[in-house]
Design a protein around this nucleic acid. Structure first.
Length: 561
RNA sequence: GCGCCCGUAGCUCAAUCGGAUAGAGCAUCGGCCUUCUAAGCCGAGGGUUGCAGGUUCAAGCCCUGCCGGGUGCGCCA
């Protein structure tokens, strides 16, 4: 409804320009907002207040002139001036009726739009290195990242989900050494245990599997254990494949799938690192000092220049990062979203600086970053410290098993990413019945239950019969519910453009609350067939929107609970 | 020391490019099941939005300075 109201206002502004109330050259910024308070109508604009200065009138006086200049419309019941000069619009039943019709005709596509126009977007998330099981922090990344993907798809983008991992660095060597130590029967307290070795029990399982000669198959590779405790290279390959499989299983259980697995090692084997170094040298932003090769990142906002090639000859980690992002750009992703933990923050400036230095037309703020803050885990009233090396864990698998997939996804995605998150496992488990996700799902199940009851009574409802009697929705609560349903598309759009899936969760909670209230105050299956059919139509629209919204969060919409 | 994130009810969190009386859930207290699922609803209490200034018709939101919590700052990845 917002665009229609904005059109009316634009017409009024044009009229006032013609009447010389407003200067002809002036470009008015028309904003139509949802109201928080019902007494302020359904939609409101601050137009009179923003134009008051230019017009040389007080805002309320100007508001009246704008109202007088508004073209007639059957969408609007009445218009009022309120407070310092807000213009409040009360929508007519004709407008809510047509809204309801539009929702039901759109069905599962209601809320979607084509603002992405089919353009390619890549979302990189999780990107855990294969050195251990996924923990709750990865879970947050997985939930937020996947929801961002779903939102982008709903906004008409062509989404590629990508998982990037380092399969060749120092951490992997430590992993291989740790597994090798276990293969030889060593324990972490032994004096020849590797210095930075991984101590978790999963290393034992891994070592046993390798010595058994198991074959592990993950999404992007497979490898058979060589049973040889002295073959470090074979152990390394096996360990990576084994942990990748474990991570894939966890992610699958979480409802998260990837289109592309990108190996950091491929940047080296395919010459992409060398290529990007050469490009940077050619661009003139590099220099040598102390035997190392430096990049002048300070020219692009960094606080000091960064080493690209160490004096001993190896590259620092940010060079493959730049190479990887150049590759993303070359693959034609106009938009890229990197969902990572906030501890990766320092790479943002460096990667962007490197991309700018390449001088290949990459926009300055490219790519987008969504950084989620740490998750603190509480169990038994105490904080659980997560340490890979010490083997202290709250794995994503633990959470899915204990709390459930729907609740875990909801909890991790329903909050803004840029705040720390406290996840109290006992609370999530013990109070599972008070969990907000059930509250939303319950609203969905209730509508389904109404329709089952209808069928049991030998009655029926069709969309046609319902749409024919929408005028029977005379209650204020019914109108409010419809107005809220009408806001769903803008939530999808706004959440999609700002990469903030939590907005969808909040919207659904509010919608569910409004429906529960309505459900308790008005019976749907009443004697009067017209009223009944009209209310069933409304209930079905509510169900559809909750279904669509839950789908965006990757949470199921049960038909009974 | 420098950079970034956060600070909102006892707790966990919202607040849609700066809008009107800052909202939910949990917890506490009091009501509602012979009526479509009580995993629900209705009501009550609970706030100087960390502090102090500034910008404007309007600030939880923007600017400056403090305070507090977190995190990152290597020729490690």
């Amino acid at each position: 409804m917002k665009p229609q109201i904005a059109e009316l206002l634009a017409a009024a502004v044009a009229q006032l320009k013609q009447d010389n109330v407003l200067p002809a050259e002036f470009e008015a910024n028309i904003q139509v907002e949802n109201t928080r308070d019902k007494s302020h109508g359904d939609l409101a604009t601050n137009l009179a207040m923003t134009l008051a200065k230019v017009a040389g009138k007080n805002p309320r006086q100007l508001a009246q002139m704008i109202i007088d200049a508004l073209p007639a419309s059957e969408l609007v019941e009445k218009v009022e001036i309120a407070g310092p000069g807000f213009i409040n619009f009360f929508l007519s039943q004709a407008s809510t009726n047509s809204l309801l019709k539009a929702i039901l005709e759109a069905g599962e596509t209601y809320g979607r739009n084509n603002s992405g126009a089919g353009k390619k977007v890549q979302v990189e998330f999780v990107s855990a290195n294969p050195t251990g099981p996924l923990h709750i922090g990865h879970g947050r990344g997985a939930a937020v990242g996947d929801c961002i993907c779903r939102l982008l798809e709903a906004n008409g983008w062509d989404v590629t989900r990508e998982f990037y991992y380092n399969d060749a660095g120092q951490q992997i060597n430590n992993l291989a050494l740790s597994v090798q130590a276990r293969c030889k029967g060593l324990t972490p307290d032994h004096e020849s245990w590797p210095a930075d070795g991984y101590r978790g029990d999963y290393i034992i399982d891994l070592a046993n599997s390798y010595m058994n000669g198991d074959t592990v198959v993950s999404e992007d590779q497979s490898y058979t254990g060589a049973k040889d405790a002295d073959d470090l290279e074979a152990i390394r390959h096996f360990a990576v494949a084994y942990l990748r499989r474990e991570q894939d299983l966890d992610l699958k259980a979480f409802g998260v799938n990837f289109d592309v697995y990108f190996l950091e090692s491929s940047l080296y084997t395919e010459g992409k690192v060398e290529d990007v170094v050469q490009r940077l040298i050619n661009s003139g932003y590099t220099y040598e000092d102390g035997g190392a090769l430096w990049l002048k990142t300070t020219e692009f906002g960094d606080d000091k220049d960064r080493v690209m090639r160490k004096s001993e000859g190896g590259y620092t980690y940010f060079v493959p990062d730049v190479a990887y992002h150049l590759n993303k750009w070359q693959r034609g992703f106009e938009r890229v979203v990197n969902e990572q933990g906030a501890d990766h923050h320092s790479t943002i400036t460096r990667v962007r600086a490197g991309l700018q230095a390449l001088n290949v037309g990459i926009p300055q703020g490219w790519p987008d970053y969504v950084l989620h803050q740490m998750v603190t885990v509480m169990r038994g009233g105490e904080e659980v410290k997560i340490s890979k090396r010490a083997g202290s864990y709250v794995t994503l698998r633990d959470l899915i098993d204990e709390v459930g997939r729907d609740a875990t996804r909801y909890f991790l995605a329903a909050r803004k990413a840029d705040g720390q998150l406290t996840f109290d496992i006992d609370l999530a488990r013990e109070q599972s019945s008070d969990n907000p996700v059930y509250y939303i799902q319950y609203a969905h199940a209730r509508v389904c239950s109404i329709f089952r009851k209808l069928e049991e009574s030998g009655l029926s409802w069709t969309l046609e019969s319902g749409l024919a009697v929408l005028d029977k929705l005379e209650l204020e609560s019914e109108k409010d519910l419809i107005v809220r349903l009408g806001r769903f598309p803008e939530v999808v759009k706004s959440a999609g453009s700002s990469n903030e899936p939590h907005m969808v969760a909040n919207y659904l909670k509010d919608l569910a609350a409004e429906f529960h209230t309505y459900y308790n105050s008005e019976k749907t299956l009443v004697e009067d067939a017209d009223v009944r059919n009209a209310r069933l139509t409304l209930a079905e629209a509510v169900r559809q929107v909750i279904y669509n919204g839950l789908h965006l969060l990757g949470v199921s919409a049960p038909t009974e609970m």
